[in-house]
């Protein structure tokens, strides 16, 4: 079935099925961390997660119908936001901790060993606290993640050719489906109409914070790379370069 004819319930169940499996860092962490060892663990994990993120995106109904150019742009724009939202979701029941993976958990204070990362950890922890206060549900989380992906590029490119315009229209219809799905997920929580509207507002407003932290994180990673603290390679390098070379 095409996403435009799917019920919100069906759409959500498809994006729930698309969720990537739990991922492990699978490294012997030598504590205390050094700046280099922590950055290496963070980037190794990110690189593994990125591969799974591409498979995830391809399973979102309608994503593969967009032009390949749009698919590439969307992923290049939003990858760190998606990683960060996933991190927040894993950490939501662990106040003061960042659960990067089941075998890689950090306390806020451990951020001290990497120059400039504590500020980012604090922003990640603050956004995670907001999700905790809101008691974010899994259905809402998967919708927000799809929204980040599909919304990431909307205001940075304007379609020129007929093909680009067609893909842009598909993208907008797909965003409609995701918004409908989120509204449906919220409507299942037994709230008053007004409370539902407020919840929708609060959840979507959090996305602007995630974009902000992602921008900070991107700057931080590119600084770490430039200073040769960490070797960024492979897919992560490609994704980072897309945000910094311009």
């Amino acid at each position: 079935t095409h996403h435009s004819t799917m019920s919100p319930e069906e759409f959500i169940s498809r994006i729930m099925e698309a969720e990537p499996p739990e991922i492990y860092l699978m490294e012997d962490l030598k504590k205390p961390f050094t700046e280099a060892s922590m950055m290496m663990s963070l980037t190794n994990l990110a690189d593994k997660e990125l591969v799974l993120m591409i498979s995830w995106a391809k399973k979102i109904p309608g994503f593969l119908e967009l032009s390949l150019t749009d698919q590439i742009h969307l992923l290049k724009c939003c990858w760190l936001e998606i990683l960060m939202l996933g991190l927040m979701w894993r950490s939501v029941d662990h106040p003061g901790k960042l659960i990067f993976s089941p075998d890689f958990k950090l306390n806020r204070e451990e951020g001290q060993c990497v120059e400039g990362i504590m500020e980012i950890f604090d922003m990640l922890l603050a956004a995670t606290s907001r999700f905790r206060e809101l008691k974010l549900q899994r259905e809402e989380y998967v919708c927000l993640k799809a929204m980040i992906l599909l919304n990431s590029n909307l205001c940075t490119s304007s379609p020129q050719t007929a093909e680009e315009l067609e893909s842009r229209n598909k993208l907008l219809r797909l965003l409609d489906s995701v918004i409908d799905a989120l509204v449906w997920a919220i409507s299942k929580l037994g709230l008053s109409t007004q409370q539902q509207t407020l919840r929708l507002g609060h959840l979507t407003m959090l996305l602007s914070h995630i974009r902000h932290v992602s921008n900070k994180g991107m700057d931080h990673l590119s600084t770490m790379k430039r200073k040769n603290v960490v070797l960024v390679y492979d897919l992560l390098l490609e994704m980072l370069d897309a945000n910094t070379s311009s």
Partner: peptide, 13 residues
Amino acid sequence: HTKLLQLLTTKPE
């Protein structure tokens, strides 16, 4: 071919 392009265009398992 970039890795991203390669991952996007390979058929799902």
